[in-house]
């Protein structure tokens, strides 16, 4: 597939945003059961704000992908069948939930405002946040399923796709949370950074699994099934047009083979070992600079990862577009 930059930014930005929110909520939950020091409402509020900004940026870039953004509202109509439609519904919901979550923190509200006293100071945020978490997971699922549900894009059509979206997004969000904590809540750095590393390791496992899986994939479609002629030796003589077409632009990454291959190594290095090292170092020294470097490098790596994710997907339609003459 031809990687669309709008989609690359959309998925990486909202992934980080979602992950950040998950990190905030996790730390808040741990704090609620006294496993971690409690943070100020402002800490969560600002954190949520960052998350909302990331999600909103993602949403905005997604508009660049649309021919008719003014009709974007229509996308909400087919949630029964379309994962894209579902994503479009859930994304604002996530955004809203996180915003509300952040706002409640900012306002310092809890359930007492409706007359319920649970004795837990942040009971309301915990409840709203739980909803947010549910929505966030749903959003990861939707995003992943947009790709995973296309059966014949065999590289995508696996449960690993949503899992990778989930883990990579969460890892990057936790990394960001670690950076954030290094400034405003140093006592959380170990916790968040630790989880960032653990999730990253899990992501490494699942992403590697998908790479290995994809390397072993046997395309189900072939020239034989594509044109229905059963013969061992066949080649395309002409694809019917010479100056290119939508079919030659949209489904080929267009990069030379060496670029394609090296991007894989680039993302593998940028997303996993480098951030891992930087995170480990950064956690120990609670260094904002090192941790920021870890996040930024990882984010760049994720851009490459996403590019590769698209580029690697072999659309069966390409069988029909092999030769100009």
């Amino acid at each position: 597939m031809h990687p669309a930059f709008s989609v690359i930014f959309l998925t990486t930005l909202i992934g980080a945003g979602q992950g950040l929110f998950l990190a905030l909520y996790t730390s808040e939950s741990y704090a609620a059961v006294k496993l971690l020091p409690v943070q100020s409402g402002a800490f969560y509020a600002w954190g949520s704000a960052i998350s909302v900004v990331l999600l909103a940026l993602g949403l905005i870039t997604s508009f660049f992908h649309l021919g008719h953004p003014e009709r974007a509202w229509r996308t909400a109509t087919k949630w029964r069948t379309s994962w894209l439609s579902r994503e479009v519904i859930v994304l604002p919901a996530v955004l809203g939930a996180i915003a509300v979550y952040g706002a409640i923190h900012a306002l310092g509200w809890n359930l007492t405002i409706v007359g319920i006293d649970t004795g837990v100071s942040n009971d309301l945020t915990l409840i709203v946040g739980a909803g947010g978490v549910l929505l966030t997971f749903t959003l990861f699922l939707c995003t992943g399923m947009i790709y995973a549900c296309i059966k014949f894009l065999q590289e995508w059509s696996t449960w690993l796709t949503p899992v990778n979206y989930l883990l990579l997004g969460t890892a990057s969000g936790f990394a960001l949370a670690t950076v954030y904590a290094s400034l405003f809540a140093p006592e959380l750095v170990y916790f968040l950074g630790g989880w960032a590393i653990i999730i990253l390791l899990a992501a490494f496992v699942t992403r590697s699994a998908s790479l290995i899986r994809n390397a072993r994939l046997k395309p189900k479609s072939s020239l034989q099934t594509a044109i229905g002629v059963r013969h061992q030796t066949m080649t395309q003589r002409s694809q019917g047009q010479m100056g290119g077409s939508y079919n030659t632009r949209e489904y080929f990454h267009g990069a030379p083979m060496w670029v394609f291959r090296s991007i894989k190594w680039v993302f593998l290095v940028l997303v996993f070992p480098l951030p891992l090292i930087l995170l480990s170092v950064g956690i120990n020294e609670a260094s904002f600079t090192v941790l920021s470097a870890a996040f930024v490098i990882q984010y760049l790596g994720l851009l490459a990862e996403r590019w590769f994710f698209f580029a690697q997907a072999n659309h069966p339609q390409n069988i029909y577009y092999q030769t100009i003459s």
Binding site: L66, G67, Y246, N247, H315, Q317, Y320
Partner: peptide, 18 residues
């Protein structure tokens, strides 16, 4: 149509044109 191209990705035959 909002021009998201998603349907064309979902056609294995390359039958749609944006």
């Amino acid at each position: 149509c909002i021009g998201c191209k998603y349907c064309s990705w979902a056609c294995p035959y390359g039958a749609r044109e944006f």
